[in-house]
Amino acid sequence: MIPSLVRFAVRRSLNDTRHIRVVKRRHATGLVADVYRQVERDFGMLAPPTALHSASPGTLAASWTILRETLLAQGVADRAAKEAVATGVSAANSCPYCADVHGMTLAAIPDAADPSALTSWARESATAAGASSPPGPAEQSPELIGVAVAFHYYNRVVNVFLRDSPFPTHVPESAKPKARKVLGGVLRRSVAGPRPGDSLDLLPPAPVPADLAWAAPNPAVATAFARAYAAVDAAGIRSVPARVRDLVHGRLSVWDGRPPGLSRSWVDEPVATLPAADQAAGRLALVVALASYQVDDGMVDEVKRAGADDATLVELAAWASLAAARRVGTWLAEARAAAA
């Protein structure tokens, strides 16, 4: 009874999603319905960080595919190791929602090995200077790097669209310790994990790009990311002006993972180089990519006033988030190759 109530409460937290409307489960059709069914089957509930993408079905499928095939699916690394990486990355990216969810899941896994080495690796590898090969057997690296890249993506979109807590705003603070314990148990209910590869057919085939060399030893992970990358690239072409894409790629090409600054003044100069019509989108895309915790309501409202609907807003945030996550993947791949 209590787990069912906690699932219901977390589903209700979809009502707290910011800036966009999430497709309700009962109204979902087509690809959105297909993804929702898999999420509920394999994750135990309709997870808000995935469902928030529902205005853009292809982006929804992409976000789910990389999460499922890294964090959840059966593999060489166990679920506790993956949750430790998710928790560390989320802390590095100042994403309290994801740090809370995955920290409580990790705490609920029985007989888990000490996660501190993997959590520290994940935090330190958020910068190029701190990047190293994942601790543990080399055959686990594609899964662990995959989780890290997936959460560098997820943390950014969550920081834009969700509040700081996975629990609805009406849940009192006094009830949250018990709720965390129960929710952690619900989320880790299938520690063994679902069968790898079941999500891949949600997206069309795509070539594996060079920056996925780290995933090559694990075909399911490599295929998941290749298809997700292609889907989000297509979303970027639809929803992010070409000049904005060029600006973000240029900044990311020299970015080393360090925060750009305590204030948002760092974004003013590069955005000023854009045409006036693109500046709102450029500002949001750059801040999502480099410091998503600095996104505020005014920044998003400016993009909406420029004409962005829910699908455009989701696709802009998703494209910028994945562009940054792919950049992190490059230095993780280099560190893995150096250690081989």
Rank of each mutant, 00 (worst) to 15 (best):
Ser4Ala: 15
Ser4Pro: 02
Val6Ile: 14
Asn15Met: 03
Asp16Asn: 09
His19Gln: 07
Ile20Ala: 11
Val23Thr: 15
Arg26Leu: 00
His27Arg: 14
His27Gly: 03
Gly30Thr: 06
Tyr36Cys: 03
Gln38Leu: 15
Asp42Phe: 06
Phe43Glu: 05
Gly44Asp: 02
Ala47Gln: 13
Pro48Tyr: 09
Leu52Gln: 00
His53Thr: 12
His53Leu: 11
Gly58Cys: 12
Thr59Cys: 14
Leu60Trp: 08
Ala62Asp: 00
Ser63Val: 11
Trp64Pro: 05
Ile66Gly: 01
Glu69Cys: 02
Thr70Leu: 10
Leu71Glu: 08
Gly75Pro: 00
Ala77Val: 06
Ser90Cys: 09
Ser90Ile: 04
Ser94Pro: 01
Ala99Val: 00
Asp100Asn: 06
His102Arg: 08
His102Asp: 05
Thr105Cys: 05
Thr105Trp: 06
Ala108Phe: 10
Ile109Phe: 09
Pro110Thr: 02
Ser116Gly: 01
Ala117Leu: 12
Ala129His: 08
Ser132Pro: 04
Ser132Lys: 03
Pro134Glu: 00
Gly136Ile: 05
Gly136Trp: 10
Pro142Met: 01
Pro142Cys: 00
Leu144Ser: 06
Leu144Trp: 01
Ala150Cys: 14
Phe151Gln: 07
Asn155Ser: 09
Asn155Gly: 08
Val160Ile: 14
Arg163Asn: 07
Pro166Cys: 05
Phe167Val: 04
Thr169Pro: 05
Thr169Met: 06
His170Glu: 07
His170Arg: 13
Ser174Arg: 09
Lys176Gly: 03
Leu187Ala: 10
Ser190Asp: 14
Gly197Leu: 00
Asp198Pro: 11
Ser199Gly: 15
Leu202Lys: 08
Leu203Gln: 06
Pro209Thr: 11
Pro209Glu: 09
Asp211Pro: 08
Trp214Gln: 08
Ala235Tyr: 07
Ala242Thr: 12
Arg251Asn: 10
Arg251Asp: 07
Ser253Val: 02
Ser265Gln: 12
Trp266Phe: 14
Val267Cys: 09
Thr273Asn: 08
Leu274Trp: 12
Ala276Arg: 11
Ala280Phe: 10
Leu284Arg: 13
Ala285Cys: 13
Leu286Thr: 11
Ala289Phe: 07
Leu290Phe: 06
Ala291Asn: 10
Ala291Val: 07
Ser292Glu: 04
Gly298Arg: 15
Val300Tyr: 04
Asp301Lys: 14
Asp301Asn: 13
Glu302Pro: 06
Lys304Ile: 15
Lys304Cys: 15
Lys304Gln: 15
Ala306Ser: 13
Val314Ser: 03
Glu315Arg: 08
Gly329Thr: 06
Thr330Cys: 04
Thr330Val: 01
Ala335Arg: 02
